[in-house]
Design a binder for these strands. Structure first.
Lengths: 121, 121
DNA sequence: GCAGGACATTCGAATATTGTTATGTCGTGA
DNA sequence: TCACGACATAACAATATTCGAATGTCCTGC
């Protein structure tokens, strides 16, 4: 049902697309579609340097795609609820598509191999 | 129904998003969601210089979002059918969202005010 | 063939984005 | 309070993107 899409803020939509127009950030969103993760998870699962992981997450946060919370030493990231109905629908489609992909599944497996999804180390 | 989304080529998806991560190009897609148009239409409706209109259309074409055909002196652009099921779904959502927006409606009205949707001049 | 219109491409300067190295901040545990 | 780990930010060079001006290509009408 597309009735939820009642508005479209062009500026917000372009920011949304721009943030997702990068393979690394798409892979981050793919991992997050399986649940909450902290920065070190992205480093190991995607082979990113620590500053790079942090910055890509910052880009996604600026675009309103992810949000974070601190828990002790760690900062956990999760997909942010979308205020804009259009972005909400797009992100939903994206997340559902991420349930089936091979390459991205390798990322998830690399993540699970390194450590359980809850504990950091 | 999202059953059509059986694959997700991450590289193609990021190219797709990257091309749409720009306000001008989103407005172009908005106009195209109402039908086929030639370059001069974008110039007048969106206030773009000729080289800029051409270039933005080129970006969208490289990403496989639009395709073009020549008719006499004019080159007509239209939305391209999406091969990738994921991009197809995303573009569909985008087009359906463009049916309701105010700002973008101004673009369309500016387009129609300048000239009929079929004749160039 | 020639002139002119419609569009594409090239070039160059300004600006933005990228990844790495170095450094800063914050919370934890001793 | 001090050292350390997790993360963020700054600083930098390399690269990419942006737009306008100039130029090139293709088609049409004469």
């Amino acid at each position: 049902m597309s009735a939820a899409i009642s508005t479209l803020d062009v500026r917000q939509a372009s920011r949304f697309f721009k943030a997702l127009g990068d393979e690394t950030r798409l892979r981050i969103v793919a991992l997050l579609s399986h649940g909450e993760l902290c920065v070190c998870h992205f480093e190991s699962a995607l082979g990113l340097s620590q500053p790079n992981a942090s910055r890509q997450l910052g880009v996604l946060r600026s675009a309103g795609i992810v949000e974070s919370r601190r828990e002790g030493s760690w900062v956990y990231y999760r997909l942010a609820p979308q205020l804009d109905g259009f972005c909400k629908q797009q992100l939903k489609t994206l997340v559902s598509a991420f349930g089936r992909r091979e390459v991205l599944k390798q990322d998830v497996e690399r993540l699970l191999a390194a450590r359980g999804p809850d504990s950091c180390r």
